[in-house]
Simulated assay, not measured.
Amino acid sequence: MAAARQRTAAAPEPCPGTEPGVHVFAKGGVPVLDWRENLEFDGRGALWVSHALKGVEGYRPDGTRFATMPVPSPAGIRRGPDGAMYVNYGQIPVPHGSGIMKFDPAHPDRAPRKVVDGLLGINGLAIDGRGNFYLGREFAPTLLKLRPDGTEDKDWTAAADVFGTNGLALADGRLYAGISVHPRSPVEQVPLDDPAAHTRLADLSPSALGFKGLDDLTVVGGQVYAVAFGAGEIIRIDRASGESCVLVDGLPSPTSARAPLGFGDHDPENGLFVTEASGRILRIGPLH
């Protein structure tokens, strides 16, 4: 997977050390038609994947698919503090509208139900320990915060004036947000208790010629792992210094990455699972 790539002189260089292995966990299908957009582990032995056309799929650690739920055009999916799985729906306009659904992964029928409706243009999703929702919107002037009851926290939303966000991840009281539409492919860090004090963690393409096309991102320990859909890369960013490097390249349109929490014998501190628009689900590691 160490395919040659074009990059500007100031673009992130390959990470030092041995490049991690890239293994196919689930095969793809027809590109775009088999688009897998996002993923999340429930911590109880299952992986849940947003499939653009088929809904939300459930996988076991051995790679078998055991469930499919009818969620229309799903996007960001995250586990809530109550153990339920929450998923944005209606990323592509559908007759059912758009918003957030939830389902109980431990319930036999796992029937999804709407939590909130009428949220246009949403993609990335993060949920804090109190059950507040944070949503990325690629063509909106700010992040969106909803309270657990689905009402908007308008003051927080107005203060978090970061345009064009996609992937979101929470860690240590900060919301990390990848920006898809900016020519420098930045990642912002937004304090939850003071969103107006957001700062730039890193620019991943210091010129428009190296545009990354950022999609989702995740946090593992002291690192942010940003998924570059356009560049076919997984980029590692040090949370303390903002220094970045390319962990893996040559991937066909990766869309999301998550650490395998409670998923068989997979190490959540030393591996990632990655979805692609090709339909593949990959296992990447070791990370160090």
Results as ranks from 00 to 15, higher is better:
A231N: 01
I237R: 09
R130G: 11
T142E: 15
A208V: 15
R200N: 08
V224Q: 07
G210Y: 09
S205W: 06
I235G: 05
D172Y: 14
I234V: 06
F133T: 08
H182G: 08
D216T: 07
L146Q: 00
D128V: 03
D215S: 02
R239M: 12
L170N: 09
V227Q: 01
H198Y: 02
L125D: 00
G167K: 08
L170T: 10
A197Q: 01
G242V: 02
E243F: 10
A169V: 09
V227N: 02
F139V: 14
L201A: 10
T218N: 10
D172R: 15
Y225T: 11
S180E: 14
A169G: 09
E188L: 14
L168N: 12
R239Q: 11
T157E: 08
G213R: 07
D216K: 06
L175M: 06
R147I: 03
G178Y: 05
W156M: 03
A196F: 00
I234S: 03
L209S: 15
L204P: 02
F211Q: 11
T165G: 06
V248L: 10
K212A: 11
V181Y: 10
L168D: 11
A177Y: 04
G173W: 02
R174E: 15
L146A: 02
F211M: 14
G242D: 02
P186C: 06
G232K: 00
P191W: 04
G164C: 08
G150F: 04
L170G: 12
Y134Q: 07
D161T: 15
S244C: 07
P148T: 05
F229S: 10
G167V: 08
Y176P: 07
I237Q: 09
K145F: 01
C245R: 09
L143P: 01
L175P: 02
L204T: 06
V181L: 14
I237C: 12
N166Y: 14
L125H: 00
D161W: 14
G242F: 02
